[in-house]
C-alpha cells in the first residue's frame, strides 16, 4: 500500500510536469500549426534560466522567478519571430525539421554555457517526508502537483475569460475569420510561443527541483509526444489527462516491473492508441477535401 501511494505521488508529479510541457506544445500546435520538437529544450532552458538568475546572479527568489519568466517570454517571442515566421506556409516536414534544428542549437548552447554536468541549485521546495496512511510521501512532489494544478488552472482561466486568451482561441479556430474581426494573427503567434516558453519554464524549474538541473531535462521532454497523442494534439484538457496517464503508467511499470520497460511503455501505448484512434483520444477528427 505504501509503495502504491508513493508510486502514485511520483506518477502524478511527473504527470503534472508533463502536462505543463504538453500544454506549451499544444498551445503552439493549436495556434500556429507547428509541431514543436524543441519543447524539451524549452524545459531545459527554463530550468537553467532560474539557475542563472537565482544562483549565478544571486537575485532573491521572487525577483529571480520574475526575471526568469521575462527571459523565457522574450526567448519564445524571438524564436517565433526569427525562426518560425519565415516558414509560415512551408510544408510540414520543413517546419518539423526547423524545430529539430532549433532543439539541437538550444541544447548545445546550454552545454556550452553550463557544461554537461548537473549544476547545483539549492532546493526551493521543502523535501521533508509527510506521513499519510502509513506511507512516507515526499512533500516536494506533493507541492509540485499542487503548483502544476494551479498553473494549469490559471492558463485555463486565461483562455476562457481574458481578451488575449479568447483571441488566441479564435486564431486557433480559423485564422482568416480571426483576421476579419481585427485580431492580429502575428501577435497571437508570438503570444502562443511566449506562453509555451513560460509554461516550459515552470515545468523545467519544478522538474529541476525534484530531480536535478542537468542537460537530461531535455530527454524528459521527449515524453511530451506520447502525452499529446494520448490527449490529442489540439486539446488543452487532453494534456492533463494524457500527462497524468503517462506519468502514472511509467511509474507503475518501473515500480512493479522493470525500469527499462517504463521508458518504452509510453511509446507502445502511443502506437496502440494511434492504431485505434488516429487523432488521439480527445483530438479533433479532421475532414479533408481536395
Amino acid at each position: 500500500m505504501s509503495t502504491f501511494l508513493n508510486l502514485t505521488v511520483y506518477g502524478l508529479s511527473d504527470g503534472a510536469i508533463l502536462a505543463l510541457a504538453a500544454l506549451g506544445f499544444v498551445l503552439i500546435y493549436k495556434a500556429t500549426g507547428v509541431i514543436n520538437f524543441a519543447q524539451g529544450e524549452l524545459l531545459l532552458i527554463g530550468g537553467y534560466t532560474l539557475y542563472l538568475t537565482f544562483v549565478v546572479f544571486k537575485l532573491p527568489l521572487v525577483l529571480a522567478v520574475v526575471v526568469g519568466a521575462a527571459i523565457a517570454i522574450a526567448l519564445g517571442v524571438v524564436i517565433e519571430r526569427l525562426v518560425l515566421r519565415p516558414l509560415i506556409g512551408e510544408n510540414p516536414i520543413s517546419v518539423i525539421m526547423v524545430t529539430i534544428g532549433l532543439a539541437a542549437l538550444l541544447n548545445a548552447l546550454v552545454q556550452i554555457g553550463f557544461g554537461t554536468q548537473p549544476v547545483h541549485r539549492p532546493r526551493i521546495l521543502p523535501d521533508d517526508p509527510v506521513r499519510f496512511a502509513g506511507a512516507q510521501l515526499p512533500l516536494d512532489r506533493l507541492l509540485v502537483i499542487v503548483i502544476a494544478a494551479v498553473v494549469l488552472g490559471v492558463f485555463t482561466m486565461f483562455f476562457r475569460y481574458s481578451r488575449h486568451g479568447i483571441a488566441l482561441r479564435a486564431v486557433a479556430d480559423d485564422q482568416q475569420a480571426a483576421l476579419t474581426v481585427g485580431i492580429s494573427v502575428r501577435r497571437a503567434f508570438a503570444l502562443a510561443w511566449a506562453l509555451a516558453a513560460l509554461s516550459a519554464l515552470i515545468g523545467g524549474v519544478l522538474l529541476g527541483d525534484i530531480t536535478e538541473t542537468s542537460p537530461r531535462l531535455a530527454a524528459f521532454g521527449l515524453l511530451v509526444f506520447p502525452v499529446v497523442i494520448l490527449g490529442g494534439l489540439d486539446s488543452v484538457p487532453g494534456t492533463i489527462v494524457g500527462g497524468l496517464t503517462i506519468g502514472l503508467t511509467a511509474n507503475y511499470i518501473s515500480g512493479y516491473w522493470d525500469a527499462g520497460f517504463a521508458q518504452i511503455g509510453p511509446y507502445v501505448l502511443l502506437i496502440l492508441i494511434l492504431l485505434v484512434r488516429p487523432y488521439g483520444l480527445f483530438g479533433e477528427t479532421r475532414i479533408e477535401r481536395v
Binding site: 525562426v83 519565415p86 534544428g101 532543439a103 542549437l105 548552447l109 552545454q111 556550452i112 557544461g115 554537461t116
Partner: peptide
Amino acid sequence: SESLPAIENAVFGLVIIGFLLFEP
C-alpha cells in the same frame, strides 16, 4: 576543447535552420 561536441551540435542546428530559412 571542453565543449567541442556541443559546438558541433550547435553548428548542426544552425546549418539546418539556415538552410530551411534561406534555401528550403
